[in-house]
């Protein structure tokens, strides 16, 4: 056995350690890539939660950078991110659109009048069909769309101050969304 061969077990061991390290650190389900990223937002036609006469379609999301937030009253994390959404709605020029996902419309309207409404429009998705089009597998999920309706960012889970500072704010800057000076940086 040559001197070089003595190192074979050690090298094999280090390779296994490396594969294990990469493999186990991949186990973050929030990094599940969205199939919709960098693709146009799908076409849809749906009822409006707040104006029952009105129909909403994809063209209502075009022309301005838009944040589409999938939420429901049965989702506790949606409640915890609600204050952050209100803050983003008040402090920036982004168009915030809600998708009321598999929810009861009466409860949803009560929820908004009780806790405040950050949305310009709320799409009713009572049976989750729009959710399937968006690749939604839970709530909340949030999509950032550019002017042309292309999805530039997706967040699975809550929008919190850290997500605002690290993920949303730089992308708002890229898209040319006006942000109040008080909203810049860590809050």
């Amino acid at each position: 056995m040559t001197r070089a061969q003595l190192f074979v077990p050690l090298i094999l061991f280090l390779v296994i350690c490396g594969v294990g390290y990469v493999g186990f650190s991949l186990n973050d389900r929030h990094q599940l890539p969205s199939a919709l990223l960098h693709k146009p937002f799908p076409e849809f036609h749906a009822a409006s939660l707040l104006d029952t006469e009105r129909r909403i379609s994809k063209k209502d999301l075009l022309g301005r950078p838009t944040l589409v937030n999938v939420w429901a009253t049965w989702c506790p994390t949606c409640k915890s991110e609600h204050d952050e959404l209100l803050r983003i709605a008040a402090g920036t020029d982004v168009r915030l659109v809600g998708v009321n996902y598999k929810d009861d419309s009466v409860q949803a309207r009560n929820w908004l009048s009780q806790f405040g409404n950050p949305y310009e429009l709320v799409i009713v998705d009572a049976d989750g069909a729009i959710g399937v089009e968006l690749g939604v597998y839970g709530a909340p999920e949030t999509f950032l769309l550019d002017r042309s309706g292309k999805v530039v960012y997706k967040r699975v889970g809550d929008v919190n101050p850290r997500i605002w500072r690290d993920e949303l704010q730089p992308r708002f800057a890229d898209l040319g969304v006006r942000v109040d000076p008080g909203m810049v940086g860590w809050q």
């Binding site: 599940l32 890539p33 199939a35 919709l36 399937v132 968006l134 690749g135 597998y137």
Partner: peptide
């Protein structure tokens, strides 16, 4: 399904 939910 793949277009909406990816390879996952």
């Amino acid at each position: 399904l793949q277009q909406r939910y990816g390879d996952f």
